Simulated assay, not measured.
Amino acid sequence: MTLEDAHTSIPKINEESIRRPKIDHFHGKQAFAGGVAAFVTRFVCQPFDVLKIRFQLQVEPLGCNKSKYVSMPQAVRTIFRDEGVVGFWKGHMPGQLLSIVYGVAQFWAFEECKDYAKHLNLYHQNENIANFVCGSMAGALGTVTVTPIDVVRTRLIAQDSHRGYPNTYRAFMTIGKQEGIRGLYRGFYLSLIQVAPLTGINFMTYKFLCTSTVDVLNLHDKSEIPALVTFFNGAMAGLVSKAVVYPLDLAKKRMQIQGFGEHRKNFGKHFECTGIVDCFRVTILREGYRGLFKGMWPSVLKTGITSAMNFCIYDNINLLIKNNT
């Protein structure tokens, strides 16, 4: 065989198969849709977040006489009596910033990852697993971006009315000066461990439910799914994902208030721990396994509503953009 024959016998590589997937510029508009959805959702659901965090940071058992909060109705009455209506929106500005930044990063990253995944066999072999992986990567990127905002938000909600930081800006500056980057990223690893699978399960469940809806209702496309059904699918996705990883969320919040005990004396005993493992150990030792699920009900309600609104608003804005371009 001549060298020329050998050269011609080598199979030609299909350049299309190795070419970098083309970036769809529509993803910028999808990022915008994600930001709008996050903004609206955060404003509506902030009171649930305040309730959740107050329960998560309370060391005393729920049935104890020393507990400031013993149930959701009683907690609502107490916050309203002590802090007024504004108390339910404590930490709203950093929370709003967190939601918008995270919403933009999450939805943009998910669509980008999904574009790349479509060129791999995994996506076509098991779309649910592909959606989980893409969602997890999107959640990880969002976590890296917003953890400092989450730390500030948690402390503003956790502090006494006349102690701590006067505003979001001062909170950032004070934590950065006194505790450094490490202070702004307290609980980061727990956030990553929690949010990545949570976002993955969220996207996977939502996409699965939407695909099932198309089949059950004999629709031609997901864009034909009624808004109310989209809302329900989003709510179910949020409930399932949050229930799976909730103890990690509780531990993350307790890690974020370490070194902050002087500014929350009116909320009972301050929780102290030395690390992730110690956080779980101390919680179980003092409060039992039930303590790992403190604040779960307001959290599940908030997550269900948040997820439902996020997906519903996001999908409808995307549909509106597509119909007008």
Rank of each mutant, 00 (worst) to 15 (best):
G187S: 00
V85M: 08
E83F: 09
T154Y: 00
G164L: 05
T154L: 01
P148M: 13
G84N: 04
D160W: 00
D82K: 15
T147M: 14
V146Y: 05
F110A: 06
T168V: 14
Y165T: 09
Y185V: 06
R163I: 05
H119L: 10
I100K: 06
R81Q: 08
F110D: 06
A130V: 04
F188Y: 10
D82C: 11
V151L: 13
A138N: 01
D82F: 02
G187Q: 00
N128L: 15
N167M: 05
R77T: 12
M173K: 15
L120Y: 10
T154I: 03
D82S: 13
T174M: 06
I175A: 04
H162T: 15
C113Q: 10
E112M: 14
L141H: 06
T168E: 01
M93G: 08
F132A: 03
S99T: 12
R77Y: 10
L120P: 06
G180M: 01
T168M: 09
R182V: 11
F188K: 02
R81W: 07
Y189L: 06
R182M: 12
I79T: 10
I175S: 01
G180W: 01
A140G: 12
L98M: 04
V101Y: 09
M173C: 09
E111P: 08
I181E: 02
L122Y: 02
K90M: 12
I149F: 14
K118F: 02
H92W: 12
Y102P: 13
I100A: 04
K90H: 12
M137W: 02
Q106P: 02
H119R: 15
R77N: 13
H119W: 10
H162F: 12
M137H: 05
R155A: 10
T78R: 14
Y123D: 05
G176Y: 03
G91Y: 06
V144R: 12
N128T: 15
L192K: 09
I129F: 15
H124M: 05
E83L: 10
T147I: 14
I193V: 14
Y165M: 11
K177L: 07
I181L: 12
Y165E: 04
Y185D: 02
H124F: 07
P94Y: 07
H162C: 10
